[in-house]
């Protein structure tokens, strides 16, 4: 019964053809699917996607290895020389070291400061986006799977959250909590979880209506397994896109808050704080103190957005070729 070929043709197939026919009628060798690899390939074959990826990877590496790349540790007061303050790009210090991007008002090498600032910015961005993603996804999944009152409650909460400007919420929170990396991450998570919740709920509602979820229920699998093993993994593509974009947004929001002086403490300067530091010297002609950290911030955000844009095209089934 299982071997259809033999059933149909006992004895009638010329022996010379048997192997070839069996091959043609057996399972056709489809190319192995590697969705992740294919997605990455498709991001990289697009020029803008490639540029974005290069920028992001370069900046990530720079931030990660800031300790080894940076010519000086900008927060070690012992190595700073106040006499070197506000040197223009390319000047040499008394000790013979070249400040390629100039120094700030503390005599700090700007290149080193940017690398360390980048590290803080990226860490805050990824950490806050990651935590918000987990919280938001759980809320969205619960909302979609159970529906009814729980759904209404969560979604109204999301509506309220989204109706306030994020910067306002963050300002108020930081005014209450005070400064610190942990505090700013909390503020960013509070302003961002709602985006993830809404994305996951939308995707999960679509998935819940598909018959493989019916099949899972028919197989008496518990709700926990149905949501986590079946629904959630299928919500990942839109979630990845939102997460990429949100990291960029978190970085820029953090920079804004730090620029306003209520984000990170001076001891752990991020890019925003560096820009803010140089701001007062802009008009006196010492442009580099603000501009170089600004360019770094710009590159980071544009890079992430380019990658995110391309990912959205690749992962959105509507644009699939």
């Amino acid at each position: 019964m299982t071997d259809l070929t033999t059933e149909m043709k006992q004895g009638t197939i010329p022996p010379e053809l048997a192997a070839e026919i069996a091959a043609a009628n057996s399972f056709p060798p489809e190319p192995p699917a590697r969705p992740v690899r294919r997605a990455i390939k498709r991001v990289l074959t697009d020029p803008l996607g490639l540029v974005g990826t290069l920028i992001v990877v370069l900046l990530l590496l720079a931030a990660l290895f800031a300790h080894w790349i940076a010519p000086q540790n900008p927060y070690d007061l012992a190595v700073l020389d106040i006499m070197d303050n506000r040197l223009s790009p390319g000047s040499e210090s008394f000790s013979g070291m070249t400040y390629w991007l100039g120094t700030d008002d503390q005599g700090r090498d700007l290149f080193s400061a940017i690398l360390y600032g980048l590290r803080t910015s990226i860490f805050v961005g990824i950490a806050s986006a990651g935590i918000a993603l987990v919280i938001g996804s759980v809320m969205g999944l619960v909302s979609a799977y159970f529906g009814g009152r729980i759904d209404t409650l969560v979604m109204r909460l999301v509506d309220i959250q989204l109706s306030f400007p994020p910067i306002l919420v963050a300002l108020i929170l930081l005014a209450i909590l005070g400064q610190g990396v942990d505090k700013i991450i909390v503020a960013l998570v509070v302003t961002q979880w709602a985006y993830y919740a809404r994305t996951v709920r939308g995707a999960a509602l679509v998935e819940r209506g598909r018959t493989y979820v019916d099949a899972a229920r028919c197989l008496a699998l518990p709700s926990r397994m149905v949501t986590l093993n079946h629904i959630l993994p299928n919500c990942l593509p839109p979630l990845i896109v939102v997460a990429t974009m949100r990291v960029a947004y978190a970085v820029s929001l953090e920079a804004t808050l730090s620029f306003l002086g209520i984000g990170l403490p001076v001891t752990e300067p991020s890019l925003g704080l560096l820009i803010s530091n140089g701001n007062k010297y802009m008009l006196s002609g010492d442009w580099w103190i603000s501009v170089f950290p600004g360019v770094a911030l710009l590159l980071l955000i544009v890079g992430i957005n380019l990658v995110g844009d391309r990912l959205r095209d690749v992962l959105n089934p509507k644009f699939k070729d």
């Binding site: 018959t211 493989y212 028919c218 197989l219």
Partner: peptide, 29 residues
């Protein structure tokens, strides 16, 4: 009782989780 009554669906592709290898799909329950 639930396990004793199973269902086969109209759209075979939609009734299989796209992210499950078929071995897992068949053996999970």
């Amino acid at each position: 009782f639930q396990l004793k009554i199973q269902m086969i669906f109209q759209d075979p592709l939609d009734s299989l989780n796209p992210r499950y290898r078929i071995g897992k799909a068949v053996s999970e329950a």
